[in-house]
Nucleic acid binder design. Structure first.
Length: 616
RNA sequence: GCGCCUGUAGCUCAGUGGAUAGAGCACCCGCCUUCUAAGCGGAUUGUCGAAGGUUCAAAUCCUUCCAGGCGCGCCA
């Protein structure tokens, strides 16, 4: 995976140079990190006491994970297994040695760690007490919308180019996938401390625009009552019809009187503008805005393609053959044409100029998001970048697989306007923006999506997009309930609100000062405590999840995470009453936990661009 | 022919060298005088596509093969 080359280390203190320009003084105090520090200390002491065989330092990373089985504790560390080889000791013995040192630490006695045990073949399993959990809730309350922000990117400049559809027609669901992925990746990178720019490359020059002009003129003339043949080799007439209506509205009959050589480019340009405008509006509806719409035509006008060809020639990577200009591709299976014998540049030549421009702008990383059907172009683009004298590794192409639409398990293929593909706006109209974003964001780009239109519309648990939003709305509803008048369903009496708005606000201030207030969240009864503890552990994992998603370039992981948080909230909700007028400390603490949960859900939803509704 | 992606429960997927391979859906059984039952709990579900290899340990790494998708233009 291309993302693996990114620096995965988390550097502190946090210093954000992203577009929100925010600095945080607080350092993270994640439970896993604290536990890892504890194990590291234990290891160091064990070493100096000669309990680790020949080892003087730890040759393996100490990884703390949540085990799959609850019997294995809340968190577990398998480092003893990895150290066995280095220390020339049995894993179980290493684990026992480490555990002995950990048990001596204050954390093992003061409520941070409730218990630890060593299990075969050499795991150390920990059960958490309440103290670190209360710190975790406080951390979220303190950082609010910045909880989860990380600095994996260290302010590196990243350009993400995506959608880049031709301005010759409507966007289909496949464009939608690239659009949502690009936008989520941009949000994620921003959240993870990169300096992100988003760009749409407009192919507004060349053969397809000429074809658009011919088709547009014919469609226009036919609409205005002139009997002409519609070109058979261009874009389907019905795909243009709504755009031509707009052109007529704007320009009336002005192209009718023009000479064809004048009318074709003129109406082609007008139609192109209408289409691009339409694409822009549709993408805005999907909460996608670009920093830049980069016009191919602008490259031609500034002679940038000629310049790029000159650079290639200067670098001795071109030659002429059969009247065409070729790119010499060393180590590639074949050479590629840059300028056809007709004198026209190929797509590759234009791309060379475009990417030369990108490289000159000085990004640390450039990501292009393309449909997998374009993957054949990747080697050519990489070759031309190398021939231009730049580092081809700085440009990475993410390929998105196909989107299959289903309805009741049956494939949907037909569209009102086009025979084979389904249009993005039709899906958005049917299932709504949030569901479209969720289902297109949720998957790994390498896998095809089976988009079930019926599922996406369901207001039920089966629909993960709904379920997450419902959990957020439920949090809001509980917080609202605390400060609203109550209507008794049976007697019809109106009771005063349990708390005033001011009280609720003042709680927040108290939480910021004193994490121990959250001790009251937890019950002593283990069957209740387990849900309370699990919720907090999931909440505090957001920064980890952000880092993981960012280094793997998979924002979809945060969609899965949000779902998991929603699930843990529901389990908590079933077991733990929040509004407890007769028990202020518990109510206060649990309202704080609900605030934290709401915040985490909102932050995760923010990255995938799905709205977080306050009521449903 | 060559290249890329994919193959894990009936379905959708998680799991990038560690414990008995996990969720959700579907199906079945329970739970509403309680903050949204738009929900929760429980039961059932597997030759990790196949075969070899590396390793104390493989769904995960290597090799070969099988199946599906996509791509290999003086198209864009």
């Amino acid at each position: 995976m291309a993302g693996a080359q990114l620096d995965t280390q988390c550097v502190r203190p946090f210093l954000f140079q992203n577009r929100i320009h925010r600095k945080l003084q607080e350092t993270g105090i994640m439970i896993k990190e604290r536990l890892r520090d504890l194990i590291t200390k234990a290891f160091t002491q064990a070493c100096s006491d000669g309990k680790m065989g020949p080892l003087t330092e730890c040759p393996e990373p100490i990884i703390v994970e949540q085990p799959k089985l609850p019997e294995h504790g809340d968190l577990a560390c398998g480092v003893a297994l990895k150290l066995a080889r280095h220390a020339k000791l049995a894993p179980i013995q290493i684990a026992n040695n480490l555990a002995e040192y950990i048990r001596k630490t204050p954390e093992a006695k003061n409520g941070c760690i409730e218990s630890l045990e060593v299990a075969n073949p050499g795991f150390i399993n920990f059960r958490l007490g309440k103290v670190w959990l209360t710190d975790a809730i406080q951390e979220i309350i303190l950082k609010k919308e910045n909880f989860g922000r990380e600095n994996v990117g260290q302010g590196k400049k990243v350009l993400i180019e995506y959608v880049s559809a031709n301005p010759t027609g409507n966007l289909h669901i496949g464009h939608g996938r690239g659009a949502v992925l690009g936008s989520c990746l941009a949000n994620l990178f921003d959240f993870a401390g990169y300096d992100v720019e988003e760009e749409f490359y407009v192919n507004d020059a060349g053969a397809q625009i000429a074809a658009l002009g011919r088709c547009a003129l014919a469609a226009y003339q036919r609409k205005l009552g002139k009997e002409v043949e519609y070109p058979t080799d261009g874009y389907p007439e019905e795909s243009l019809t709504e755009y031509i209506d707009k052109v007529i509205e704007q320009d009336k009959d002005k192209y009718l009187s023009m000479d064809e050589t004048e009318a074709i480019p003129a109406i082609g340009n007008a139609t192109k503008k209408v289409i691009q405008d339409d694409q822009e509006k549709l993408l805005e509806r999907l909460h996608i805005t670009f920093d830049r719409w980069f016009s191919e035509e602008s490259l031609h006008q500034a002679n940038k393609v000629d310049e790029a060809m000159q650079v290639l020639a200067d670098n001795k990577f071109t030659y002429e053959k059969d009247g065409a200009l070729w790119l010499k591709s060393e180590g590639e299976e074949r050479d590629r044409v840059l300028r056809k014998s007709s004198g026209d540049y190929t797509y590759l030549a234009n791309d060379a100029a475009y990417h030369l421009d990108k490289f000159k702008r000085g990004y640390d990383l450039m990501i292009n998001i393309w449909g997998a059907d374009h993957h054949g172009q990747v080697p050519g683009l990489k070759a031309v970048i190398e021939a231009l004298g730049y580092d081809k590794e700085k440009l990475q192409v993410v390929l998105t697989q196909i989107v299959n639409l289903n309805r009741d398990g049956k494939a949907v293929r037909m569209s009102k306007r086009r025979g084979t593909v389904v249009m993005l706006d039709e899906v958005m109209d049917e299932v709504g923006v949030d569901a479209v974003r969720y289902f297109l964001a949720e998957s790994n780009p390498n896998n095809p999506i089976n988009f079930d239109l019926e599922l996406a519309k369901k207001q039920k648990r089966e629909n993960p997009a709904f379920y997450i939003q419902y959990a957020h709305a439920r949090c809001c509803s509980i917080l609202r309930k605390a400060v609203e008048e109550q209507n008794d369903r049976e007697t019809g009496e109106t009771k005063p609100a349990v708390l005033t708005e001011e009280q609720l606000k003042s709680f927040e201030k108290e939480f910021e000062k004193d994490a121990s207030l959250f001790l009251a969240v937890f019950d002593e009864a283990p069957e209740k405590f387990v849900y309370q503890k699990n919720l907090v552990m999931r909440l505090e994992a957001l920064p980890d999840e952000v880092r993981d998603a960012a280094v793997n370039w998979q924002p979809g992981k945060l969609a899965h995470y949000a779902y998991d948080v929603a699930n843990h909230l529901q389990k908590f909700y079933e077991e733990s009453q929040v509004i407890l007028p007769d028990n202020l400390p518990v109510m206060k603490a649990r309202l704080g936990l609900i605030m934290a949960t709401r915040q985490v859900l909102a932050n995760a939803l923010q990255v995938i661009g799905v709205s977080a509704p306050e009521r449903m």
